[in-house]
Design a protein around this nucleic acid. Structure first.
Length: 508
RNA sequence: GGCGGCGUAGCUCAGUUGGUUAGAGCAGCGGAAUCAUAAUCCGCGUGUCGCAGGUUCGAGUCCUGCCGCCGCUACCA
């Protein structure tokens, strides 16, 4: 970031089920950050992908009657397609089954083994195959059942390789002391800190009975624990995403890593410890967001309480979904997805406020000035206001307050609708003596809408490019500095190309 | 049990380090306007800021207790 590069990641998605809106949410939010940083001229690398190893994948593959590889291929492709549908501008899509990733995992693990951070020990415990996790006796339910699945846990004893996580306790606490912004929001940092202070146990990072995984290089009877494997994707991707170029030097460490709150511990405790052990610089910041709730409850693959994003995308368009998610759910908090709320925001905000603003602007310029966009007046009060809006948006993005960023941009949209009423161009148009005033009013309006499109571009890229085209502006340069007052192309002609967000009939 | 969070207008929520008459959006009511996707703009809030105490010149904002709701405690964004 300081050097003008920006490395941004989403978690990699586990391919044991079809993607749902929770995955879409994280990818969309990350994409907004990525696009915003590019608007600012940063050299951005935006990574997402899929997590494909583990016994659970092998089992669901078997149920589906195919090999783990076939299963992973099929589902990984679904996640890749989801990203494309969402308009995700990721620079690479990593799969943990990529051979270069597996080599990187083996290398890092070997390094930790050599340095003494990985050791062999016996481990016994109650194991749930569905969870791929061991439980302590007191955690089990009646009949020694898995607290999550309710199915009986089995007693397993095996020799595993352990990561000396406990040895990093003091260094982790020092990290949280020194970098209060390492994990945001603040409450999540406190949670993570508490996990560290409450005592860390060494972590078993290999499995004997799991075949579908990366073999432990010096003990090929064992495979690497999926989380150890998965976390390293953030590092390994930079080593092979571009043929012939090692991106590690250019982008490492990550500037921002996004995730939902369920995987806080892996990212805020285990991951930095792994990097310390490997001698790699730590990420500059993690941001932990909340859940997209349905009916006030958590969506879950297990219970089937999920929202399918595709019908909404088909009816309202991807930009409407992107807008709704970032606006409705205060980023960092949980929020509830409802069809009613979606439709209300689409109609009130996208169609009526923004879409209609563009439409009335273009329409008046077409009607009163034969489609020629007048130059914006240099003395407009909007010029200063635009500086304020832009700074507010940039500041919000810097703090990863994405909901706030859209709200700040939206203040301009509302200001512009008010401006139309204040100037009343239709009234000026009736008096030929006020032609200059009319030019000024229409130029001011067009310039304001153009700037609003640039501020909102990370949220709704396609729609904002359409706004620019409708105003006769090039749509291929959306750099943020072009949101300056008067930076638009001169001599533009408006193009009436129909409603930006057409009203959608809502069946009763 | 442990740890953490939440409870502010009918609804969804903002409210930096405590400081004057507690805000926004939506919904509702009234009005203006007619460029526009009948889309916009203006006006209208007697809210015990969950309850009870405490600290303070002053608390929605800090402390204690209580009530209610929720999350995490190694499946899943």
């Amino acid at each position: 970031m300081a050097d003008g590069t920006f490395y941004l990641t989403t978690p990699i998605y586990y391919v044991n089920a079809e993607p749902h809106i929770g995955h879409a949410y994280t990818t969309i939010m990350a994409d907004m950050v990525a696009r915003h940083r590019r608007q600012r001229g940063d050299d951005v690398f935006f990574l997402t992908g899929t997590d494909e190893h583990g016994d659970k994948i092998a089992r669901s593959a078997a149920e589906a009657g195919r090999s783990p590889r076939q299963h992973a291929d099929a589902l990984s492709e679904r996640f890749r397609e989801l990203g494309a549908t969402l308009g995700a501008s990721n620079d690479f899509f990593i799969r943990t089954t990529d051979a270069p990733h597996e080599r990187a995992v083996a290398e890092v693990l070997a390094r930790l083994h050599d340095s003494g951070d990985v050791y062999r020990d016996a481990y016994g415990g109650w194991y749930c195959t569905a969870c791929e996790a061991f439980y302590r006796e007191e955690e089990l339910g009646q009949g020694r059942s898995c607290p999550v699945h309710g199915t009986p846990a089995e007693w397993l004893e095996e020799e595993n390789w352990f990561f000396r996580l406990s040895a990093y306790r003091d260094r982790l606490i020092a990290l949280y002391d020194a970098e209060p912004q390492f994990v945001r929001p603040e409450g999540r940092a406190n949670e993570a800190r508490r996990m560290i202070e409450d005592g860390l146990e060494d972590l078993s990072i290999s499995r004997v009975n799991v075949d579908w995984g990366v073999p432990v290089p010096w003990d090929t009877d064992q495979t690497v624990y999926v989380w150890f494997d998965a976390l390293l994707n953030y590092y390994s991707a930079l080593r092979y995403a571009r043929d012939g170029e090692d991106l590690v030097a250019r982008f490492w460490p990550p500037d921002l890593q996004l995730m939902a709150k369920d995987i806080l511990k892996f990212h805020a405790v285990i991951w930095p410890a792994m990097l310390m052990a490997a001698g790699l610089p730590l990420p500059r910041g993690l941001f932990v967001h909340g859940y997209v709730l349905k009916g006030g409850e958590r969506m879950s693959k297990t219970t089937g309480n999920v929202v399918d994003p595709f019908p909404f995308i088909e009816r309202f368009g991807i930009d409407a979904l992107r807008y709704y998610l970032v606006r409705e759910i205060s980023f960092g908090e949980d929020g509830t997805f409802t069809a009613e709320g979606f439709e209300a925001r689409y109609t009130n905000e996208l169609a009526n406020e923004l879409g209609n603003l563009l439409n009335r602007t273009v329409s008046m310029i077409d009607r009163y000035r034969a489609a020629a966009v007048p130059a914006p007046p240099a003395d407009s009060a909007l010029a200063a206001e635009l500086v304020d809006r832009t700074e507010a948006v940039v500041g919000a993005f810097d703090r990863v307050e994405l909901t706030r960023a859209v709200e700040e941009a939206w203040v301009l949209v509302r200001r512009l609708n008010r401006l139309v009423e204040e100037r009343a161009p239709w009234s000026l148009a009736r008096d030929p003596a006020r032609a200059l005033e009319l030019d000024s009013a229409l130029g001011e309006l067009a310039e304001g809408v153009r700037a609003a499109a640039l501020l909102l571009w990370p949220v709704m890229p396609g729609s904002c490019e359409r706004i620019l085209r409708a105003l006769g502006q090039p749509d291929d340069d959306v750099a943020l500095h072009r949101a300056r007052w008067g930076a638009g192309a001169a001599g533009a002609r408006v193009d009436r190309s129909g409603p930006l967000f057409p009203r959608v009939e809502v069946p009763a």
